[in-house]
Design a binder for these strands. Structure first.
Lengths: 194, 194, 194, 194
DNA sequence: AATGAATGAGGATTCATTCAT
DNA sequence: GATGAATGAATCCTCATTCAT
């Protein structure tokens, strides 16, 4: 049943399969064959569309980051006021789309990939910078000169929660993680501007 | 003349070589051969002493965690007062022994290993539990019911900083990381007990 | 509107592309995809027209041999006298059309192909037999019984020069090669008939 | 039955198997697996000892050239007088050790390899240069200024005979080839020095 | 006429692991 | 105690070829 315009479909299927497979395996020791099988095609086709394993990984990473960014933007769109906007970012970070075990596993492994792949590192840095500037944008009116430090703390605590959630792997961590980080936000706000 | 007591020497050399090699490679895609070569022996001997690659990794992880624990204990021994003790834990976490790029890389990879290996997961949980209870022990007198949450935040922020430092890989992050977490401590203290 | 009579055009384009590609790669490890791309079409179409890779090679070989034959015939048409005709054959052998690096590379690889493919072997033998009989035809009046040996020597020396030129790959070997073989011709003639 | 000092034995076996396999297949499309199987070992071991397929080919080529060189030296040792020495070189070139179908096939393929591999090209040029200088050394006293051209003709005719013999693949070509080239030698000598 | 889609087969290479010495 | 020898299994990747449109 060969049709035209399969490329985007196949690519999307592979990206999804990659994240699923990494989530299932727990590490990047995932074979192209298994990814392709999960996506319902031969490994040769996967290579045809992506060129190689690295690029499959990168595409999966880009996808994850894109989803994350969209989630944050959507949350920001519905939030009024600086504090509500910061809270929205935090909540979006732990939204169910991102905070699934398999996505967390993928995320963690992307950090590992970034140790080796310059492209992966660049992607991750872009994500961090964007998160940081988003946070600073709304923290500055509230905290003045303390905004930078507070943004770093909040962003870094989010990362820390991801790391720990990846380790524990029990469901329902979303609420806890959100509460924890929002408590930090409140703490920062209670200290006020400087 | 067969040398006596070579076993501990060989094992220690392999553990060190493992961490160095992971640090150099940036991931767990490290060959037993390369580890053994770095340790000055044949890969067959590495197998002889450890039984397999997994156990070599586990031993390296145990060693890293042991070092970390010792560092914390030493820091605690010289600290007077609850606040000083918490600060000591934070400082020890970022002490130069642990916060080298190669150790951070190893640490990050142990998190990945924990996704697969039950033993690795257990080790990592022990470390987290110990860190948490150490923090709570000294935070409770200061923060009362808020001690648990504060300890989780501090511990998790430490982890987050490791993750980010692993990404950035620039030297001299020790001071920044310490300052950042100590600022959180101060924030928690400023809110007082509940 | 489907174009009519595309077949000969496509086939010619593929044959040319094959020789170019072999010349560019230096060996027969040439993919159908690359040949087709060079000829401006899909690899599926190449298969459609030729049936398979082997037949593409064979067609390229046939083409090369045809060109060579035409070159020789043209040279012979303009030569008067036995000696001049032999010289014409030699000169045609090293004419710029044949003696380009890419054609030499293809030629050499056809010899390799002949080790495997009976068809290729047959083609090459036809070429050799024709060259030999052309030479003998004009050498016999000059050398009598020595014509056979002389023809073999001259033909074989031409082949040897191709082989060596393929190795050296520097331009401008045409003159040298021609001179060398003509010197042999003169030598044979100086000995006279037997 | 693992013993010590297997390396040279294994390498020799692989080199021999490579030539045999190329001879059997007729081209360089020979798998490491097949070479290794022919040499009685796993392909992994072949890689262990040689590092890669290219190096296996190169070693086989070096071996062939070494054999050839030894054959020539031996022949020269027993020859008295300039003409006899040149004849000895020619005879050695077609000695049964070199002029077997499988060796000729390998030889031809090395020429193809030289189109791609700089190392292979270097080896082949060394062989040609040595052959040429050997010929010139004994032709100069006989032919003076004509020695260079004569040496090129003789060397190139030897190559041409190899090429043709590779194509024909019938046994017993040794005598014919030798006779043919010696006839050229005689021709050159009959013309005398210049 | 022409091609994107798709795959099975195969190949080089790597590696953890075992074994005899 | 120590290692060279050896391999089976696995992985990424390529390619000729087929097929439906």
């Amino acid at each position: 049943m060969p049709k035209l315009g399969m490329e985007p479909i196949r690519r999307a299927a592979l990206v999804k399969a990659t994240i699923d497979e990494i989530g299932a395996m727990g590490n990047l020791d995932v074979t192209v064959r298994d990814i392709a099988k999960r996506a319902g095609m031969s490994s040769a086709l996967a290579h045809h569309y992506f060129g190689g394993k690295d690029q499959i990984f990168l595409a999966a990473m880009r996808h994850t980051l894109t989803i994350f960014g969209a989630e944050v933007r959507a949350a920001l769109a519905g939030a009024k006021g600086h504090q509500a906007r910061v809270a929205a970012i935090v909540q979006a970070s732990f939204a169910s789309t991102n905070f699934q075990p398999k996505v967390i596993a993928a995320w963690l492994n992307f950090y590992v990939l970034a140790q080796t792949s310059a492209d992966a590192q660049r992607l991750l840095r872009i994500y961090q910078r964007r998160l940081h500037s988003n946070l600073v944008h709304d923290l500055r009116p509230l905290l003045g000169g303390r905004a930078q430090g507070a943004a770093t703390r909040i962003g870094s605590l989010i990362d820390g929660q991801y790391l720990r959630q990846g380790l524990l792997r029990d469901a329902g961590g979303t609420a806890d993680a959100t509460t924890l980080v929002l408590a930090l936000l409140e703490l920062e706000l209670s200290r006020g501007a400087e």
